[in-house]
Amino acid sequence: MPPAPLCPCSSGLRYRQCCAPYHRGEAEPPDAEALMRSRYSAFALREVAWLWKSLHPDHPDRSRPEAEMLKELRTYAQGHQFPGLVVMDRRPPDERGVAQVLFFAKVFERGKDRSFVERSDFRHDGKGWRYVSGAARLPKDLAGPPEALTLATFPE
């Protein structure tokens, strides 16, 4: 029997021991980084219900109809490949309860590189960590390799 697949979030763990419990609703990610990794895996595996659930109530897309958002998320996920993720930096919650994660998402659309670096904000909603917002940059717009960035050096 072949080994269970590795998790798309690049944690090095098997999917069933990493992001699967979150996607199945069996557990909540313990911190903002785990939530961010689970969202990347959800795009890779087309777990669009988790992508919707993991949005913070303050995220602008939460004001849109759920069915419409699920359809858009499914279309995006089906049209892209997600070969890997690099987490470069993280910051625990500040006085407002906002935690940050800086990551490089490798994404391809029909062979074209659509990868990006994002500084994401997350906040706990009383049930679990949720994605609030993000600021993204394309690798070509950065002064050096994306993996060399930190939260302190991420361009504003």
Score class of each variant (00 low, 15 high):
62 R>K: 14
80 H>D: 01
71 K>P: 07
69 M>G: 02
58 D>L: 08
65 P>G: 06
56 H>E: 12
86 V>K: 02
83 P>Y: 01
61 D>Q: 14
84 G>F: 06
71 K>Q: 14
79 G>Q: 15
78 Q>W: 10
100 Q>R: 09
78 Q>K: 14
86 V>F: 02
101 V>T: 06
89 D>F: 00
99 A>Q: 00
101 V>I: 13
73 L>M: 15
102 L>W: 01
56 H>A: 13
94 D>K: 08
86 V>Q: 00
93 P>D: 14
97 G>C: 10
101 V>H: 04
101 V>A: 04
84 G>T: 04
58 D>G: 07
57 P>F: 10
101 V>G: 03
93 P>H: 13
92 P>I: 09
93 P>L: 11
78 Q>A: 15
82 F>I: 01
63 S>W: 04
91 R>W: 11
77 A>Q: 03
97 G>Q: 12
100 Q>V: 02
80 H>S: 05
66 E>W: 05
72 E>W: 01
70 L>C: 13
80 H>I: 00
78 Q>L: 15
90 R>S: 06
79 G>S: 15
59 H>S: 04
74 R>F: 12
76 Y>D: 12
56 H>L: 11
73 L>Q: 10
55 L>I: 01
103 F>Q: 08
68 E>Y: 07
99 A>V: 00
76 Y>A: 14
56 H>Y: 12
65 P>N: 08
63 S>H: 14
59 H>K: 02
69 M>H: 02
66 E>S: 07
73 L>A: 09
82 F>N: 01
